[in-house]
């Protein structure tokens, strides 16, 4: 009996020692890499913003909807203290009326959802009331159909257009946005999300006293 107790203890000691050593090694590597990993994240964010807003030196981030996986954020980009552009990060997911109220988007508002899951995007506006462009961050739309939303022909709908120049609905619904062939659902989802982003931008512009 004594012998078994001894060898069990030995097993436990060995395993604990192992875990301790590996824990230490991992702590070391983590220390060495964590700053770099953080920097990669910040770089990625900066690059994404640079695609849709005019050049800037500082960014102020505002969380509009606090969701762990799908936060809606506004990025206020300034150059030498003046606002050059605002980017809105949002997704096509269905918002509750409480959330719509929080975003200050007037109801009734027709929310169109994506074909699969939700489309996450970054919509860039310039401070003089134009939409600069959109950048699709994540999506699960059908490859070859909905995924064509990334093509230039569709993206041009939102490229450098004064906000009051277009009716922001797809042509099928009486608007001015050229929809994708055979991918009306995806087109509607993107257009509906951009319409939300436009409302958010207008609210921001009012608070910041822009044009």
């Amino acid at each position: 009996m004594m012998k078994k107790g001894n060898s069990d203890l030995k097993l436990l000691v060995v395993l604990t020692l192992f875990s301790a050593i590996s824990g230490l090694l991992l702590a070391l590597v983590n220390n060495v890499t964590k700053d770099r990993i953080e920097m990669v994240k910040v770089e990625k964010q900066k690059k994404a913003l640079q695609e849709v807003v005019a050049p800037f030196d500082t960014v102020e981030t505002q969380t509009l909807l606090n969701d762990a996986l799908d936060p809606f954020e506004a990025f206020i980009c300034k150059k030498q203290g003046n606002v050059t552009g605002i980017a809105v990060k949002l997704s096509s997911r269905l918002l509750s009326s409480d959330e719509m109220k929080k975003l200050n988007i007037s109801e009734p508002f027709k929310q169109d959802q994506a074909y699969a899951d939700s489309i996450k995007m970054l919509v860039g506006f310039s401070s003089d009331g134009k939409i600069n462009g959109i950048s699709i961050l994540e999506h699960k739309e059908t490859p070859g159909l909905g995924s064509n939303m990334k093509n230039k022909s569709f993206m041009d709908n939102y490229s450098n257009v004064p906000l009051d120049d277009k009716k922001w609905k797809v042509k099928k619904d009486g608007g001015d946005v050229e929809q994708l062939t055979a991918a009306t659902i995806t087109s509607r989802a993107v257009t509906s999300s951009v319409a939300k982003a436009i409302q958010i931008y207008k609210n921001q512009a009012k608070t910041l006293n822009l044009k």
């Binding site: 991992l26 590597v29 890499t33 990993i37």
Partner: peptide, 12 residues
């Protein structure tokens, strides 16, 4: 342990 090390290095 080694997988985590590789994971952190690739992330960085």
């Amino acid at each position: 342990t080694f997988v985590t090390v590789v994971d952190l290095l690739i992330a960085a």
